[in-house]
Design a protein around this nucleic acid. Structure first.
Length: 755
DNA sequence: GCGTATTCCATTTTT
DNA sequence: TGGAATACGC
């Protein structure tokens, strides 16, 4: 079968478009990945060498998937395509070119926790107040600066920026930025933003030797999820594609309506200005949705129509009207989770869905906990994506830090982590003294440790001996690294540092889990060294060294995990769900201050922040193929405190005809409660009430002991007792039909008095 | 210098 | 609520 078969007219045009810039606006479910992969296959089929194609995606997984799909058409050639995330591709190039920028080729990559730790050290050493200058804020500001291509010198001379910092009560950020950059340089380390920033610098400072080479190399460039790129990324692409005689074979695919990373510096201006940047641009819009049924598509269109500033398009589907969207109203986060899970049971039993067809989405990862509990109770297999990932676990970071120090001993964050773990008598004060000298002499901590007898440090002879032993040990490890592959080095390092033994000292099940994690890490390294894996190609050579491995794991995230490995219900943030689809989707926590987030509502530029939340909601809705549920809880625990929120404004933006019932009865009145039945009680047992019978809530005053009431879920029952004060009355009600006794808060419940 | 108790602090999303 | 910085006793 020909790979072009089955494409619609627009898709076909985009796939077969020849030379020159191309922008494909691809609505959700419009076959975007298909277009991208078939376009690449088509290029190779028409004679373009695979290594001349550069494809930049948002996740490693997307790149991997793409390669797999392309190889189905063109075979092994697909493995020679340069495909990966901006960060991973640039890291590969920088591994070759870093010396030109004054970095070692085995530079370390700092993750956000390394960055924050480095920043707080700087802040403290400058005598600044860590509570005023919080590492989080500083990191964000520095990150934004880098993404706008502002280096420390430029920052320090940017009056507007300085004024802004002053107003925020942090006038010395420019100073911290400068020291931070110097610290990274000394440590031979780059943070995530640097992988882009230094790449840009590389091209800018080496137009002849370097930029020219890559311009020649990458004849075709494709960018996925273009709406989530920042100015820095866009400038790098311009470096590669905008020059005299350039064929400008740049194809970007995106959807401004799905831009959800503005908080990280992404700007839809990149899409909106693309035509200006590339005159002669061809634009195709993919508006047919092949994923979802009509109600879902309409809801998505309704929601996004509220946003300003966008490329207008209307998504349509031919998949039929489909199921109405259901709203689940809960009185608490716990109840919300029980309702969601009982709906999952229903989907499985009534609609014969499998676990893997179902996703629970939320705005923040912290929401996952309650769902986890309810799923466990009902013995439904699930898997959580995001949150603290494997590589963020302490024991894993410790082992990885050893490896980082072996590959690059100047890596100060890794060094500080392990210099006294397991404890070997090198304490904080000694390290602080050494750090100070290092800072003064603009040398790395490791460097000063090696030269410590040249200084009068006031470190005891005993400690100096410990330090010397540590240095010797690292030297041994480094010799191993020259001799053995990554796995063998790691295995030996773990063994001789006695990390496992240290973990085993603690005889708790958690400690046991940590030991298993370390073992899993070693297994992962083994796989890395054994597998013939095209992803780890650096300039067309397989690289299985320790630093290659380290670079790889630094850029791997949860999103890269295989989603379909097991038959599990998937739990993840809406951000993490981008690009995925499920037969049934639950969008949870549909409340003001959560979705949209409080941050967005209170932001200085609230309107555009809410717009981004709305795009996020749009992404969430459009993950669903057939069944969409929107749930909210009128109260939930946050910070260990109860918080009360009204339902999300977004719910009211969807046309009523999409729902099976009107989502919000009265604005001020809080929801009707369904204190979910205990899991053991058959959920799928039909409710005592015939379906469709609406309950008319009776005034609270009428609910008195002895009266009979109807509850929308539990059916008929008798009020036994009333407790609590005026507006917090709790009724104890015995229900018929095996439901039993329940305590129900009157302010939430919808109860109708009957005879 | 080490280990544990205590307090304190924050929570948006992630390459 | 729970993880991380800090304080304190050894």
């Amino acid at each position: 079968m020909n790979y072009l078969d089955g494409l619609n007219a627009m898709q076909l045009k985009a796939v077969t478009h020849k030379e020159g810039p191309l922008l494909v606006i691809a609505g959700p479910g419009s076959g975007k990945t298909r277009v991208l992969t078939m376009r690449i296959a088509h290029l190779i089929d028409s004679g373009v060498a695979p290594w001349e194609i550069l494809t930049l995606t948002f996740t490693n997984k997307a790149a991997k998937e793409m390669k797999e799909r392309i190889s189905k058409v063109v075979g092994n050639a697909a493995n020679q395509i340069w495909a990966g995330t901006f960060h991973s591709i640039f890291a590969k190039i920088l591994r070759v070119e870093a010396p030109k920028l004054g970095f070692p080729s085995n530079f370390s990559i700092y993750d956000p926790s390394d960055v924050k730790s480095a920043l707080s050290e700087i802040i403290k050493s400058q005598g600044m107040d860590i509570k005023t200058y919080t590492p989080n804020d500083i990191y964000h500001k520095i990150s934004m600066a880098k993404n706008l291509i502002i280096n420390p010198e430029k920052y320090a001379s940017d009056g507007e920026r300085l004024l802004k910092d002053k107003q925020d009560g942090m006038p010395y950020i420019y100073k911290i930025y400068d020291l931070y950059v110097k610290k990274l340089q000394r440590s031979g380390a780059m943070d995530f933003d640097d992988l882009l920033f230094q790449m840009h610098r590389l091209f800018k400072e080496n137009p002849d030797q370097v930029l020219e080479k890559y311009r020649k190399k990458f004849k075709y460039i494709l960018v996925d999820e273009f709406q989530d790129t920042n100015s820095l990324q866009s400038e790098i692409i311009k470096f590669l594609t905008k020059f005299p005689e350039s064929p400008q074979n740049i194809c970007v695919v995106g959807d401004d309506a799905q831009s959800i990373y503005a908080f990280r510096g992404a700007t839809i201006q990149n899409i909106l200005n693309f035509e200006r940047d590339y005159p002669g641009l061809t634009i195709y819009k993919l508006e047919q949705n092949y994923r979802s049924t009509h109600h879902i598509v309409q809801a998505a269109n309704d929601v996004i129509a509220k946003n300003n500033r966008q490329i207008r398009k209307v998504i349509f589907t031919e998949k039929g009207v489909g199921e109405p969207i259901q709203v689940l109203k809960a009185s608490s986060d716990n109840e919300e989770s029980r309702m969601v899970v009982s709906k999952i049971m229903e989907l499985k039993l009534r609609n014969h869905l499998s676990n893997q067809d179902i996703a629970i989405l939320y705005r923040v990862n912290a929401q996952s906990r309650v769902f986890e509990e309810s799923l466990k109770n009902m013995r439904i297999a699930y898997r959580i994506f995001g949150g603290t990932s494997f590589y963020e676990r302490k024991e894993i970071k410790d082992v990885v830090s050893y490896l980082r120090v072996v590959a690059n001993p100047d890596d100060e964050e890794a060094l500080k982590r392990i210099v006294n773990y397991p404890t070997r008598g090198i304490g904080d004060t000694s390290i602080a003294k050494l750090s100070e000298i290092a800072e003064k002499n603009a040398l790395s901590l490791w460097n000063i440790m090696m030269k410590m007898n040249h200084f009068d440090l006031g470190i005891s002879a005993r400690t100096q001996k410990s330090i010397q032993d540590f240095i010797n040990m690292i030297h041994v490890f480094q010799r191993w690294a020259q001799e053995f592959d990554a796995y063998e080095v790691a295995r030996r390092v773990v063994k001789s540092t006695e990390i496992i033994e240290d973990l085993n000292k603690e005889k708790t099940p958690e400690a046991q889990g940590r030991v298993e994690n370390v073992q899993e890490l070693l297994d992962g390294i083994k796989t890395f060294t054994e597998e013939d894996n095209a992803e780890f190609i650096v300039t067309e050579i397989q690289d299985k060294s320790l630093s290659s491995y380290l670079q790889n794991i630094a850029l791997v995230t949860d999103a890269d995990k295989d989603q379909n490995d097991q038959d599990t219900v998937k739990l993840m943030s809406v951000h993490a769900a981008k690009g995925l689809e499920f037969k049934a989707v639950f969008v949870t926590g549909m409340e003001e201050n959560l979705f949209p987030s409080q941050m967005a509502i209170r932001s200085v530029d609230s309107r555009s922040a809410i717009d981004e939340e709305r795009r996020l909601f749009y992404v969430a809705i459009t993950r669903a193929e057939h069944h969409l549920y929107l749930s909210y809880a009128s109260s939930r625990y946050r910070f260990g405190k109860m918080q009360y929120n009204s339902s999300s404004r977004f719910l009211e933006e969807i046309s009523e005809n999409c729902f099976d019932q009107i989502p919000i009865s009265t604005k001020s009145v809080v929801t009707g409660a369904k204190l979910g039945p205990k899991p053991a009680v058959g959920l799928h047992k039909p409710a005592t009430l015939p379906q469709g019978v609406e309950i008319k809530a009776s005034p609270v005053q009428m609910i008195l002991p002895g009266v009979f009431v109807l509850h929308e879920r539990f059916g008929k029952g008798k009020v036994l007792q009333l407790d609590g004060k005026i507006d917090n009355k709790v009724a104890t009600i015995i229900f018929e039909a095996g439901v039993g006794e329940k305590k129900i808060m009157l302010k939430f419940a919808k109860l109708q008095v009957v005879d």
